[in-house]
Write a protein that binds this DNA or RNA. Sequence first.
DNA 1: CTGAAAGCGCTTACAG
DNA 2: CTGAAAGCGCTTACAG
Lengths: 341, 341
Amino acid sequence: MTIVSRKSRASGRVTLDDVALSAGVSRITASRALRGERSVGADLVARVAAAASALGYVPDPAARALASARSHTVVVLIPLLSNNLFVDLLEAVQRSLRAAGYQVLIGVTHYQAEEEEALLADYLAHRPAGLLVTGFDRTARCRDLIARSGVPCVHLMETSDDPSVYCVGFSQTDAGRSMTEHLLQTGRRRIAFAAAQLDPRVQQRLVGYREALMAAGCYDPALEWLSAQPSSLALGGQMLEHYVEKYPDVDAIFYCNDDLAQGGLLAALRLGIAVPRQLAIAGFNDLAGSDQMWPPLTTIRTPRVKIGESAATMLLQLMRDEAVEEHSVNVGWQLVKRQST
Amino acid sequence: MTIVSRKSRASGRVTLDDVALSAGVSRITASRALRGERSVGADLVARVAAAASALGYVPDPAARALASARSHTVVVLIPLLSNNLFVDLLEAVQRSLRAAGYQVLIGVTHYQAEEEEALLADYLAHRPAGLLVTGFDRTARCRDLIARSGVPCVHLMETSDDPSVYCVGFSQTDAGRSMTEHLLQTGRRRIAFAAAQLDPRVQQRLVGYREALMAAGCYDPALEWLSAQPSSLALGGQMLEHYVEKYPDVDAIFYCNDDLAQGGLLAALRLGIAVPRQLAIAGFNDLAGSDQMWPPLTTIRTPRVKIGESAATMLLQLMRDEAVEEHSVNVGWQLVKRQST
DNA sequence: CTGAAAGCGCTTACAG
DNA sequence: CTGAAAGCGCTTACAG
């Protein structure tokens, strides 16, 4: 048994050398034992573990990252924290990844290309072990940064046919079409599409809406309101007022997101418009509170917890160089019929 | 001019040595120039900066942290991401801190002491430059971890008389008392307090509520519902139903948070209870949507953006060893009278 | 299965 | 104002 000579560090920090000294092994063996490398004898593993916990040893992630050229950090980039959808997604991702020993670095892009570039450049410098990004819509520079970094990356919320790309999501277009068909089936003909934010997924829902209405011969572009503003209850209310005033024959509003739809529902209440008798209102995502509205909101339930978990699992496989069954996982969605339609 | 001998690294990474070589200076000078140390000549600074940007140099934060024993990371611990209050706070913190060159590491404790301990132990290993935590209520182990780390720490959401503690917030008790007094002044006498989550700040609001009612001789402990469940619209609705059934003489409900109050408002709508004529409803925090409710919700507006900015400023001063004027900043609050009371 | 050497990329004293 | 040396705390080959 060789005792490592040890000069005490200037910092009070407990280091691997302290653990090794205390366990009576070399620093490398201590390192291997702590990381669970199988080559170390069981007795040594136990001795090292005991010494580490006795000393309160915490590995220095910076030293680790520097020496190994990788980290246990996963970067997650989402557009917004103020949309519950992404909070649910994030919680699921965090839970799965932390359980597997990874730390999650959250970046919020606010749907701004420059912010995404800045965050990516910043976070990639930390040599993350993995990357989770929302959707496919980003600048060439961002795509380049991701590709050249060599960091495994899974895309959230959408699916793709490109086998070189990893993603977990569902067909936003199908879901948009399905909700529109539901409105048609319940006898609506003048169906408005009220959208804000206009991110790519909203656009895809719009495509589904158009397809369904064109197939039914009911499409009227005048009934689309595509606002680039952020989504909010207040905007949803304004949108409803707009349709009621300018297009009194509108018999249904399909909002691209539940917060808008909730605002529409409240505005209808304020204006004394009977929902759904006079006007049907539908949303998207099934966010918190939609089931509590009056009347409760018909919407598309999107499985973001499943997306988060599934994406975390896929990323874990990629980070461990394990085989991934499907490069694109479709988790589907569900139409939740409540009383607003 | 001395050219640093350079062996090319195994990794493709552009390092400080590459920059130094290209700029024709030593590695240390390049390091100093890049970090803006004033001792470097202006011409050299320009040359180094040009070389760095030409090569696309990005400093390695791990190497930096290891060599300097500190980082540009700030850890923020909040209880929940699903409460908009904390999202607003976080956005403000992120904006201020990123502008100053710091990265923000977000930790979500879910109001669980063990989660806070685990996060703290984990994140402190990263040698953060600063720490932002929510409130004062934490385990001795957490307090000890913070204190022994020596990392500057600012507490969010509450104020304190202890001069050794840095914090930015307001008096939750005063705000709770004030809302209760408002209800008394508008003629209410049977005022219920409906609370969930029961974190320390909710408890402080409760104290204010009790003080006001006792002073008015109207206190009835039976009208307090203190639920440890998480806050939600649905729970707020259930609470309203409870009071209507069991205590039909209740003429006002003071909810400890706006989401509960919104749920109460919607339940009243569903049950056909006239607000505020028959029953006044008040909330706390002025969250998104409260102004859109029907009727719009009377509540306490809490300045979380200001708290976030102010705390970031204070932390920045602490991290730079600058003087901090007040150890405890009180940003106040505001009663927003709308139509639900 | 265990260890001595070298190095990850940077910064902190210490010189001049 | 600029630089050569040493070191931060760990892990990766390379030996045995």
